[in-house]
Simulated scan of single mutants.
Amino acid sequence: MDRQVTVMNNDIFDEASVRYANSQLLRYVADEYIKDVRRNRRSIEDFFLALKKLSNHDAKSLLYVKNFLENKSWENISFDSDDYKSLLIDYLRNHQAPLREYNDLIYYKIENHLPEDYLGWFKNDLRSSIFLASLVEGLLEREAFKGRSELIAEISDYLRYDIHMFNSYYSEYLPDYERIDFRRGEWRTVHILSVKNSYLKNRTDEKDMKWLNVSNKEQIEWAYNYLDNVKRPYIILRDIFFPDCVRDKYDLILASLDRLSNRENSDVRCLELASSFKANPKDEDTQSKGNTERGHVIKNMKKAWETLNQDSSNSKAKLVLTISDKNRKRLHALAKNAKQTPNKFINSAIEDTYNQILGSDE
């Protein structure tokens, strides 16, 4: 059966156009124009009026297709939102066969672009977006993204328009996870679904990271620097993604841990055996997770933070001074004369002397 349907002025809409319209991405054009064009009830000007009802996103995607087909996909397509529809309409108005060209753009989009429904799971999740970007990090190394909005927009557009590139590249950089989701299906959607399921089932358990407080700026900075150490280059998207706030950096830390293998590793297990005698026998789950690369890193990271905190607490403890017997007697005599305890007298004396010599620090 011929997939092409002839309409006025020798232009055509084929089944691809109808499928695209029925997907509700271009429902205004479908409902208000395509049916009437088939019945010869509308003019070419009605077509351009209908295009004004496109969403900015739909217009942008069709402009991207046009650029790609003209080998101009490198061109900057980041305009103000209102510009996309105007640019698309201008392009089609100047084309010798606008309806045919519009039909071809839609058909290419259907056959080659990732449907919007497959982007929703990470569009408001910076952590997941960072992980996805890390799978094509080599293709993004010339780029730089500041903050969550830029990074999420970039990986969304990359998957939306260049899913074929992602499909050819990601598998080499997928972590060695305990559970990998393999499936069969349509080439545009099957790989992103596999990545989604594999990632969500294997990413770092939030229970293991309760000790990391997103509201503690000092701790988040410390954790970032710990993972970004020369000896521990675990931070991903270095020189590509630049966090804009503490929350961005927190999500980057978690995404970087997500990249580490959660499969039990004999080499890591050997490292853990040395400290196994010191471990709490009730803490079997922690010991088991410590046998994975991720568990080993998290365990050492948490221990380093607790040690640092303990050292900090000790440094704030009361200062113990040694006083000779002679001066101890003098201290008690002075304190008695001032009607104060020895401890209070010493602190008062230090404060007075400090103010006389260095001046008040208030």
Rank of each mutant, 00 (worst) to 15 (best):
residue 325 D to V: 08
residue 99 L to Y: 01
residue 354 Y to M: 10
residue 282 K to F: 13
residue 332 H to F: 11
residue 263 R to M: 14
residue 112 N to L: 14
residue 219 Q to K: 05
residue 61 S to T: 05
residue 193 L to Q: 11
residue 111 E to I: 15
residue 20 Y to S: 10
residue 31 D to V: 12
residue 98 P to R: 11
residue 273 L to S: 12
residue 174 L to E: 09
residue 182 F to L: 09
residue 286 T to F: 06
residue 154 E to N: 00
residue 144 A to R: 14
residue 14 D to F: 14
residue 245 C to Q: 01
residue 3 R to V: 03
residue 207 K to R: 09
residue 223 A to F: 05
residue 41 R to Q: 07
residue 128 S to F: 03
residue 75 E to V: 00
residue 235 I to H: 00
residue 301 M to E: 08
residue 103 N to F: 04
residue 261 S to T: 07
residue 198 S to M: 04
residue 70 E to Y: 13
residue 188 R to K: 12
residue 30 A to K: 14
residue 294 R to F: 12
residue 83 D to I: 13
residue 287 Q to Y: 15
residue 171 S to Q: 11
residue 91 Y to G: 03
residue 168 S to W: 06
residue 341 T to I: 09
residue 353 T to D: 13
residue 340 Q to W: 11
residue 283 D to W: 12
residue 5 V to T: 14
residue 23 S to D: 08
residue 93 R to C: 02
residue 337 N to L: 09
residue 63 L to E: 01
residue 324 S to Y: 08
residue 349 A to R: 04
residue 180 I to C: 03
residue 135 L to N: 03
residue 202 N to W: 07
residue 158 Y to N: 00
residue 25 L to F: 11
residue 40 N to Y: 09
residue 258 D to C: 01
residue 338 A to I: 07
residue 40 N to R: 07
residue 142 R to Y: 09
residue 347 N to H: 14
residue 299 K to F: 14
residue 323 I to R: 12
residue 90 D to F: 08
residue 18 V to T: 15
residue 75 E to A: 08
residue 210 K to R: 03
residue 4 Q to E: 14
residue 64 Y to Q: 11
residue 89 I to Y: 05
residue 144 A to S: 15
residue 252 L to E: 02
residue 4 Q to A: 13
residue 77 I to S: 02
residue 11 D to V: 00
residue 103 N to A: 07
residue 345 F to G: 00
residue 285 D to W: 08
residue 137 E to Y: 06
residue 82 D to T: 13
residue 357 I to P: 07
residue 31 D to Q: 11
residue 28 Y to S: 02
residue 319 L to K: 14
residue 60 K to G: 02
residue 32 E to V: 15
residue 324 S to P: 14
residue 149 S to M: 01
residue 112 N to H: 15
residue 318 K to E: 04
residue 134 S to Y: 06
residue 253 I to P: 12
residue 247 R to D: 02
residue 81 S to F: 15
residue 343 N to T: 12
residue 247 R to W: 01
residue 325 D to E: 15
residue 279 A to C: 02
residue 266 S to L: 13
residue 230 V to R: 06
residue 205 D to G: 05
residue 339 K to A: 10
residue 327 N to M: 04
residue 119 L to E: 02
residue 84 Y to M: 06
